[in-house]
Write a protein that binds this DNA or RNA. Structure first.
Lengths: 201, 201
DNA sequence: TTCCACACTGCGGATGACCACAATTGCTGC
DNA sequence: GCAGCAATTGTGGTCATCCGCAGTGTGGAA
């Protein structure tokens, strides 16, 4: 898996170097890209960390780059940097899901804080996403009939009722139910419900 | 219950009237307040709809008003209007949970759209909140011991195991469990798990 | 003191969940 | 055709759940 990095995307080498240095002094690993195109070309779905994206760049702008990332299903938090941002631009970016939007000149401490919080946020997201991936792969192992039975089990219905609704025997329901538990790695309907429900408590 | 209203808070009477008229033509009920203080004095937890809040006002500013609303646990979406907003102000407001941040002069259609979306959002939130209030009032009826047993039941443990952990007899666990189901209005542990879990499927 | 809510316990029976063993049907791929 | 998977069903038995009936003990409120 790709290690978490702060991906710095800026066509100004001085800024790139300054940010790289700044983050290194705070023990934040980073990688610099000299254009949106370069970053997008290298981008992979399992990139982790965050993106620090300059708005004004020679070719593709930071906002355009952001749109491409959204289309590709990027999950990393994106922090915008801009020298000449206006309010609608900032509002639009945040409403599309940007993590933050900072104006130059920015305070070094503030930027580092934002980057760190973004990377923590990504780490949390990654963790919960992995759990969900495990769930999905398990769900994928279920046959159509098993899924059907599982849904009815999750409504709390008795095997007898489920059998009625599907016009099959109770015994068959028991078998499906048992296989579902086995494949999903649980030992009861309650555990299954907890597993398929988001975190609580 | 208070009906859903677009609460217009602006110390400029011309703006208030214009917005009220604009919203009425689109069949959106609204109420105008001539200052943040006036609105906050009248504000009640069961206000519904949304808030259209001017930033620059003579006494308390829109941002200060927003902070007070947040402290009071306001749930209505807040839409900011401003003539001289800057980027950090907009970013800060959105990150604190504002629904939108519009600069004057704004497009009438755009504003109405935002207001309508905000009120729809509030209607959805209200609905899910009522469901949760029902849950809370039911949970409040449970005795301490019943809550304890309920939590263990929700982990999928057998009554026998629960009895062991609490050093009581199985029969007692059965009684608590039964009372929990009765008070929570469910008929099985699975239904209980579904009820206490956020929406899914 | 009396009443009541809460927690606790035992017994026995009805019902549901789970499982091992055993088997049939139909469809797919080699 | 044969192997393999999915879906189906039955028998018989064990374990868990659920429930009514019956009763004890404690602490707080009337």
């Amino acid at each position: 898996m790709n290690p978490p990095l702060a991906h710095i995307v800026d066509d100004d080498e001085a800024i790139r170097d300054a940010l790289t240095w700044l983050l290194r002094t705070r023990n934040v690993a980073s990688r610099a890209w000299s254009s949106a195109e370069e970053f997008l070309a290298a981008w992979q779905p399992d990139f982790h960390g965050c993106v620090v994206l300059d708005i004004r760049m020679r070719e593709m702008s930071g906002l355009e780059c952001f749109d491409v990332l959204l289309e590709r299903g990027n999950n990393m938090p994106v922090i915008f940097l801009t020298g000449h941002g206006d309010v609608p631009m900032a509002v639009g970016a945040l409403k599309k899901g940007a993590f933050d939007f900072l104006e130059k000149p920015f305070d070094d401490n503030a930027l580092v804080d934002v980057v760190i919080r973004a990377m923590e946020s990504d780490a949390r997201r990654t963790a919960s996403q992995e759990a969900q991936a495990t769930m999905s792969s398990r769900l994928a192992q279920l046959t159509p009939r098993e899924i059907e039975v599982m849904h009815l089990v999750l409504t709390g219905k008795f095997n007898k009722v489920i059998a009625d609704e599907l016009n099959i025997s109770m015994r068959t329901v028991e078998v499906h139910r048992s296989r579902v538990f086995e494949k999903m790695g649980v030992r009861s309907a309650v555990e299954l419900a907890q597993l398929l429900a988001p975190g609580r408590d």
